[in-house]
Amino acid sequence: SIVTKIISIVQERQNMDDGAPVKTRDIADAAGLSIYQVRLYLEQLHDVGVLEKVNAGKGVPGLWRLL
């Protein structure tokens, strides 16, 4: 499923980069989806406690990390 793919992308990127959070844009590119589509999935995963959003604010790139 797309959700499983997104989780594995975040996991893979974090492992490659010493646990650093992953940008929404990088996840979207790797999943082959638009940034808006991916954001909806990321928000859902956040709501159920799978991911945390590391930063927030208007015009700030979203950074995500697995919990």
Results as ranks from 00 to 15, higher is better:
8 S>P: 00
8 S>L: 11
33 L>K: 02
35 I>H: 06
67 L>S: 14
55 N>T: 09
64 W>E: 00
6 I>P: 00
57 G>V: 06
54 V>H: 03
61 P>F: 11
55 N>R: 08
54 V>L: 06
62 G>S: 14
33 L>H: 02
4 T>V: 10
17 D>A: 15
24 T>S: 04
38 V>A: 14
67 L>Y: 11
2 I>C: 08
66 L>I: 11
3 V>R: 11
45 L>W: 01
57 G>M: 05
28 A>L: 02
20 A>S: 09
44 Q>G: 07
38 V>P: 00
22 V>E: 01
63 L>F: 07
49 G>C: 03
67 L>W: 09
18 D>K: 12
59 G>R: 07
16 M>C: 08
43 E>R: 06
50 V>M: 07
13 R>Q: 07
65 R>P: 01
5 K>Q: 09
47 D>Y: 11
12 E>C: 11
31 A>W: 03
34 S>D: 10
36 Y>P: 13
18 D>W: 10
39 R>S: 14
15 N>A: 14
39 R>I: 14
57 G>T: 07
5 K>E: 06
17 D>C: 15
23 K>M: 09
16 M>V: 08
50 V>D: 06
12 E>L: 09
19 G>M: 06
67 L>A: 15
23 K>T: 12
34 S>Q: 06
67 L>V: 14
23 K>F: 05
1 S>E: 12
31 A>E: 01
41 Y>S: 02
56 A>S: 12
65 R>C: 05
34 S>C: 06
48 V>Q: 14
15 N>W: 10
49 G>Q: 04
53 K>Y: 09
21 P>C: 07
18 D>S: 14
13 R>N: 03
18 D>F: 12
67 L>H: 12
21 P>A: 15
4 T>D: 12
55 N>C: 12
29 D>L: 12
12 E>K: 09
61 P>M: 12
37 Q>Y: 07
61 P>K: 10
41 Y>C: 04
27 I>F: 01
26 D>E: 08
58 K>N: 14
26 D>W: 06
6 I>V: 04
43 E>A: 06
39 R>W: 10
1 S>G: 11
24 T>Q: 03
8 S>M: 11
18 D>Q: 12
42 L>K: 00
31 A>G: 02
62 G>H: 15
36 Y>A: 14
54 V>G: 01
16 M>T: 08
3 V>A: 09
49 G>H: 05
62 G>N: 15
57 G>L: 05
36 Y>F: 11
33 L>F: 04
47 D>A: 15
10 V>D: 00
3 V>K: 12
60 V>M: 14
14 Q>Y: 07
2 I>F: 07
55 N>V: 08
45 L>I: 02
44 Q>C: 14
21 P>T: 05
23 K>E: 08
55 N>H: 10
3 V>E: 06
32 G>D: 15
58 K>M: 08
66 L>T: 07
1 S>T: 10
19 G>F: 06
65 R>M: 07
55 N>G: 10
65 R>Y: 08
51 L>W: 02
29 D>C: 09
5 K>V: 07
10 V>L: 15
13 R>A: 08
64 W>A: 00
35 I>E: 11
33 L>D: 01
33 L>W: 03
60 V>D: 14
39 R>H: 08
36 Y>Q: 13
60 V>S: 14
42 L>Q: 00
40 L>F: 13
48 V>N: 12
57 G>W: 05
23 K>N: 10
40 L>E: 09
11 Q>M: 11
9 I>H: 03
66 L>Y: 11
13 R>G: 03
2 I>V: 08
65 R>A: 07
27 I>P: 01
45 L>N: 01
22 V>P: 02
6 I>Q: 00
66 L>D: 03
57 G>R: 07
34 S>A: 06
39 R>N: 13
40 L>Q: 11
30 A>V: 05
35 I>S: 05
10 V>I: 15
31 A>N: 01
63 L>T: 08
38 V>D: 00
32 G>I: 02
46 H>E: 10
53 K>E: 06
43 E>N: 10
35 I>P: 05
4 T>C: 14
1 S>M: 11
53 K>P: 04
64 W>G: 00
39 R>Y: 10
47 D>S: 14
9 I>E: 01
11 Q>E: 08
62 G>K: 10
39 R>T: 15
49 G>Y: 02
28 A>M: 03
40 L>W: 14
9 I>V: 06
23 K>I: 03
49 G>D: 02
13 R>D: 01
45 L>Y: 01
33 L>V: 06
2 I>H: 05
16 M>G: 08
58 K>Q: 13
66 L>M: 10
39 R>C: 11
30 A>Y: 04
42 L>S: 00
34 S>Y: 04
66 L>N: 02
31 A>V: 14
6 I>L: 10
21 P>D: 03
56 A>H: 11
7 I>F: 05
21 P>Q: 03
46 H>F: 10
24 T>Y: 01
21 P>S: 07
55 N>A: 10
12 E>Y: 12
33 L>N: 03
43 E>M: 08
27 I>Y: 08
16 M>E: 13
51 L>G: 01
26 D>P: 02
30 A>T: 07
38 V>T: 14
66 L>E: 02
21 P>K: 04
45 L>T: 01
14 Q>W: 05
40 L>I: 14
28 A>R: 02
40 L>Y: 14
61 P>C: 12
15 N>G: 10
52 E>V: 08
23 K>V: 04
58 K>T: 12
8 S>W: 12
67 L>E: 05
45 L>R: 00
6 I>N: 04
12 E>R: 09
65 R>F: 08
48 V>I: 15
46 H>A: 15
18 D>L: 10
52 E>N: 03
19 G>S: 06
7 I>E: 01
49 G>I: 04
12 E>F: 12
54 V>K: 02
53 K>S: 04
20 A>R: 13
14 Q>S: 09
65 R>G: 05
49 G>S: 03
53 K>V: 04
1 S>A: 12
14 Q>R: 02
6 I>H: 00
31 A>C: 12
24 T>V: 04
17 D>N: 15
15 N>T: 11
28 A>W: 02
61 P>V: 10
30 A>E: 07
23 K>A: 14
43 E>V: 05
11 Q>H: 10
66 L>S: 03
3 V>H: 11
51 L>C: 02
8 S>A: 13
44 Q>F: 15
66 L>C: 05
5 K>S: 05
45 L>G: 07
46 H>T: 13
2 I>R: 04
48 V>S: 12
22 V>M: 07
18 D>E: 11
32 G>T: 03
6 I>C: 02
35 I>M: 12
11 Q>T: 09
53 K>L: 08
54 V>C: 06
11 Q>F: 10
59 G>I: 04
40 L>G: 09
44 Q>Y: 15
63 L>C: 08
30 A>C: 05
26 D>F: 07
35 I>K: 04
4 T>H: 13
40 L>S: 08
27 I>Q: 08
23 K>D: 09
14 Q>F: 05
19 G>E: 04
34 S>I: 04
18 D>G: 14
53 K>A: 04
57 G>D: 09
59 G>E: 07
23 K>Y: 05
32 G>A: 08
12 E>W: 13
59 G>H: 07
33 L>E: 03
9 I>S: 03
50 V>W: 05
4 T>A: 14
14 Q>P: 01
61 P>H: 14
26 D>T: 09
56 A>R: 05
23 K>P: 14
47 D>P: 01
13 R>E: 04
43 E>W: 08
7 I>M: 07
34 S>W: 03
5 K>Y: 08
38 V>G: 02
9 I>M: 04
31 A>M: 14
27 I>A: 00
51 L>Q: 02
48 V>F: 12
10 V>T: 02
53 K>R: 11
25 R>Y: 06
65 R>Q: 07
8 S>F: 13
1 S>K: 10
17 D>K: 14
41 Y>R: 02
48 V>T: 10
6 I>D: 00
37 Q>F: 10
60 V>W: 12
51 L>P: 02
43 E>K: 09
38 V>M: 06
43 E>Q: 11
61 P>Y: 11
32 G>V: 02
37 Q>G: 03
17 D>P: 06
45 L>H: 01
14 Q>G: 05
58 K>V: 11
32 G>C: 06
41 Y>N: 00
5 K>A: 08
33 L>R: 02
24 T>M: 03
30 A>S: 07
2 I>E: 04
35 I>C: 07
49 G>F: 03
60 V>I: 10
15 N>F: 11
10 V>K: 01
50 V>P: 03
9 I>Q: 01
19 G>W: 05
8 S>G: 10
21 P>I: 04
41 Y>M: 07
17 D>M: 15
51 L>A: 01
51 L>K: 03
5 K>F: 09
20 A>T: 08
38 V>C: 14
50 V>Y: 05
2 I>M: 13
41 Y>P: 00
15 N>Y: 10
8 S>K: 15
54 V>E: 02
29 D>V: 12
17 D>Y: 15
8 S>V: 06
9 I>N: 00
58 K>S: 11
12 E>M: 12
64 W>M: 00
47 D>W: 08
35 I>V: 12
29 D>F: 09
19 G>P: 05
9 I>G: 00
28 A>P: 00
65 R>L: 08
43 E>L: 07
47 D>T: 13
64 W>S: 00
62 G>A: 15
10 V>G: 00
59 G>F: 06
2 I>K: 03
9 I>P: 00
31 A>R: 01
24 T>P: 02
13 R>W: 07
58 K>P: 13
34 S>R: 06
5 K>P: 00
62 G>V: 15
44 Q>H: 15
41 Y>Q: 02
58 K>C: 09
60 V>Q: 15
53 K>W: 08
13 R>L: 15
41 Y>L: 12
46 H>Y: 11
12 E>V: 08
